[in-house]
Amino acid sequence: KSCSILVTDANFECNEENIMLQAMDNSHIALVSVEIGAPGFTSYRCDRTMPLGVDLTSLTKVLRCAKDENICTLKAADEADVLNLVYDAKSAFFSPFFFAFMWHGRDASSPFPPFFLLCSALLPLFIHLNISLSSQTPITSSWPETKYDTRVTLPSAEFTRIVRDLSQLGEHVRIEVSKEVVRISKLKAKSSAEDEDNDSIPTGVVIEMNQHVSLTFSLKYLVNFSKSGSLSGEVQLLMSNDVPLLVAYDFTQGYIRCYLAPKIGD
């Protein structure tokens, strides 16, 4: 769901060790990279390395059908052109539904396919979904190993709050990191009363730096990145001058990393 805000189509690259996704947004301003290691799944099997090209917008709609207690199983057969999702609730109390529909075509303008709902007090909750797979052109090269000049670690909820609040006031934000202060300031005030910098040094902030860094970014993207905040209690902002910002959320057995190209000049 976090990825679908940034990219509409992407390849899930599956191998024996993990599932990975890496894709740029349509504007080629941001890049999102996700990895979920095999141990992060209750059960994981990959007999053959294969890409699963998925319409993330559609996948997100399907995921909304799941409840928190549902266990989601993703399956793709060899040479298959569909991704099969099965939601199976262990609790009989929430088990009166059976959904089944086939889904073909990736035309975003086509309506969400109709589905059939059968109710029975005894049937386990069983949502059976097929999403057609597409062949995408994946970005197979990993992001080059980059040594960043600064790393700011802060609670992800604070980061979410900061970028959300600042997005109410302007379109861009400057992030400056010096030895003891990280300053996140808006650039485009709507009125003089709102023109004061919003120095943000919440509790739990750790600043590591080799060199002063000052970069300007589009707030819209940072707000979208911050939607991943529920995946991790902390977020890391890694920056060097004149290279993309890395916003990194690490979670058990995986991560989501978002890269954002800076504004040029000032």
Partner: peptide, 14 residues
Amino acid sequence: PAPQSNISSYFKST
């Protein structure tokens, strides 16, 4: 506003 750079311009061929 300052021009926006392109993320792909930071890629290096690997």
